[in-house]
């Protein structure tokens, strides 16, 4: 066995690379923990696979009353008991973010709908979401079938697929997703939070569709739009599926 030049040496125990992590955005609209736990567990039951050990960002921007104080020591166990992995917070008041930091959470860059993630808002400047500014208008083109178990991600732009997407396959894009064939797997557009992004497909039989974290699973798709050419977009935080 010869030693590979790239093997870590004693002084070289890590590598740093810009990475991308797909995080669910959990936007809190209230702080009654019992109600929150009940409602969340209901939601998770509807798509347990989707949520299993899912890393989540707690979005604090929906908490109206600035005088609220957030007890992260009580909130985090509630989320973890439901199988979620809280990774950080975004949005909301400075005081809340400081409290989150004291509980070991990261403070991520805020985003607004319809815009690219911008530079970190806080003084810490360590935001992941803003680490690399995605190039604009770069579409990724896939001309072969996307098979079960495969995952394709188009960072910073649109994803265009010219062949069928199998059950168990997953498409993700920071921008729009266009499928000129059957969609039987999952499609998640606007995964960095672009709420203006859309999904277009010629034959909707998806297991799951999502835009900016708002998702819908197969069971909840209306029969009337199944197997048809459709577009999917968000209107007032609701997924709309429309005939093309």
């Amino acid at each position: 066995m010869s030693h590979n030049a790239h093997e870590p040496t004693a002084s070289d125990l890590f590598e740093i690379k810009a990475g991308y992590v797909n995080l669910l955005n959990l936007k809190l609209l209230g702080l009654d923990l019992d109600t929150l736990a009940a409602q969340l567990s209901e939601k998770i039951r509807s798509a347990p696979e989707f949520f299993r050990n899912a890393p989540v960002v707690i979005d604090l921007s929906g908490l109206g009353d600035p005088r609220l104080s957030i007890d992260f020591a009580a909130l985090l166990p509630v989320l973890r008991n439901l199988g979620l992995s809280p990774a950080g917070v975004r949005g909301g008041r400075d005081a809340w973010q400081r409290a989150a930091e004291r509980s070991g959470l990261a403070v991520l860059a805020e985003f607004r709908s319809g815009t690219q993630p911008k530079e970190a808002a806080g003084a810490d400047g360590t935001s992941r979401a803003a680490a690399s500014e995605p190039a604009r208008n770069v579409a990724k083109l896939i001309d072969h079938p996307v098979r079960s178990g495969q995952r394709i991600y188009a960072p910073g732009g649109d994803l265009i697929v010219l062949a069928p997407v199998s059950p168990g396959a997953e498409l993700m894009a920071d921008g729009n997703i266009h499928i000129y064939s059957s969609l039987r797997g999952r499609a998640l557009a606007g995964v960095q939070g672009d709420l203006e992004s859309r999904i277009f497909c010629m034959d909707l039989q998806a297991e799951l569709i999502a835009i900016g974290g708002q998702y819908q699973i197969s069971e909840n798709l209306e029969e009337s739009i199944r197997g048809r050419p459709v577009q999917v977009f968000l209107r007032h935080d609701t997924l709309i599926i429309e005939d093309l």
Partner: peptide, 13 residues
């Protein structure tokens, strides 16, 4: 069919 599909994905990559 599902397993074949998965296999095709592995064949391709």
């Amino acid at each position: 069919v599902r397993d074949s599909d998965r296999m095709l994905g592995i064949l391709a990559s």
